[in-house]
Design a protein around this nucleic acid. Sequence first.
DNA 1: AGGCGCAACTTGTATATACAACCATTGCCT
DNA 2: AGGCAATGGTTGTATATACAAGTTGCGCCT
Lengths: 253, 253
Amino acid sequence: MTANSTVHSSNSTNNSSSKKDKPAKYTIIKQFICENIESGEWPQNAKVPSENELTQQFDVSRMTARRALQDLTEQGILVRSQGAGTFVATFKSQSSLLEIRNISDEINERGHQHKAKQLILRSIAVTEELAILLNLKNNEHVFYSEILHLENDEPIQLEQRYVNASLVPEYLLQDFSQITPHEYLSSVAPLTEATHEIEAVLAKANICQQLEINSSTPCLQVKRRTWSKQGVVSFAMLTSPGDKYRLGSHLVI
Amino acid sequence: MTANSTVHSSNSTNNSSSKKDKPAKYTIIKQFICENIESGEWPQNAKVPSENELTQQFDVSRMTARRALQDLTEQGILVRSQGAGTFVATFKSQSSLLEIRNISDEINERGHQHKAKQLILRSIAVTEELAILLNLKNNEHVFYSEILHLENDEPIQLEQRYVNASLVPEYLLQDFSQITPHEYLSSVAPLTEATHEIEAVLAKANICQQLEINSSTPCLQVKRRTWSKQGVVSFAMLTSPGDKYRLGSHLVI
DNA sequence: AGGCGCAACTTGTATATACAACCATTGCCT
DNA sequence: AGGCAATGGTTGTATATACAAGTTGCGCCT
């Protein structure tokens, strides 16, 4: 059992600093540039230091300075022109589109009444597809909830949600007629990212039954994956009758 | 398919430009990777060659191979994990709502061929509804265009567009089998803002006929109003069969 | 059989260098 | 004065190298 020597295992935390938060050099340069733009020091169309100037200023190689400029260009913050220089972009694409909204907020904003009917709430077996969607590793569990949202007592949306159980272990204890899954998840694991796929489909028979529509009604189906810092939190499939519900978004370019 | 004189392929003419197009080495590697993914050779989650393997395979330096992988990672096509390798991303958003995109670019990015068929292009009478939508004052004219977009010769989207004639007086002179309305409007009056409404509907009979679908196929219908500095430039209604087209978006919060 | 550590591999960061392509300005020549 | 060529500065592409940091799996040892 090798109890003789103090097991200075590789995990001995020999690091003096509490966290190894030493940022990369190019991130420091990026911050420097962003701060100057934020503060208005460098207005739109202003010329920013060239790669060589940054190289001297920060005592880094040209490729490092270049990477900072390149990253910010890909973010749409800077514009580069071969031979001319690098400039602050004129349109700062602050794409505030598609904030992830709670359907209960939406309904309330219309002055209508929102109710939620919890149909299913349980742990389920992990299929291969689910493992990919939620980016699961071995032996992680998945919770499943099915909730019907009502607007003035009319079905407006069926929410089928798969949740990474290891990230949200107490999901099954919630009462989703009191709080929506979206609200609960946001409180437990704040969102950092989301992807949507939007399709027009004919819903399956069981969904049609819940939504009280006939099988030929076109439905808007949104598949939404949400991330927190820890990883993929949940995958939700939201189905709404096309004649009762629509999506809206506003994009400022 | 009736051979139509107004049909324009933006895929063929674009790539072989008159200039000498010696592509950069890293773009060749990117193409190689994309082709393998497109063809299904490398399915989702498949491991792609490491930087060192690409270095040998293409006889380039590691930084060049790296750039190819990096670029595709930033496009969301690949996923990289330090120590583990590079893999084909599980989710590739089909189109982004976060930027207002040209359907021809979308189709070309999928490696498919885009054609546009101009059905209608004329001045129309101003209804009250249109006056509200386009925020018209007195005696302003409206142009109307109807264009069918084809992906690999299959109808993919019907674009019905109303344009503020006083802001874009030369709209009727354009040939929209050569340039999409979106491209033309962007060049004349750069966008500053846009709103979308997304619905699932059953399309009207004449639209179904153009899209070559039957009347019970659910369609995704996007209504888009776009602004320039001068005001509302155009209102477009984009109708696509739900079984051929979907919208995607990626939102970083 | 099981746990542990090490080695091999992979990606991340960083430097130094070289040349090509492009832009804007300077200054010369007509 | 006007046109044109040279020049210096800037970004784009590419290579070679080095080390850090993370993952995986093999194999030794207990």
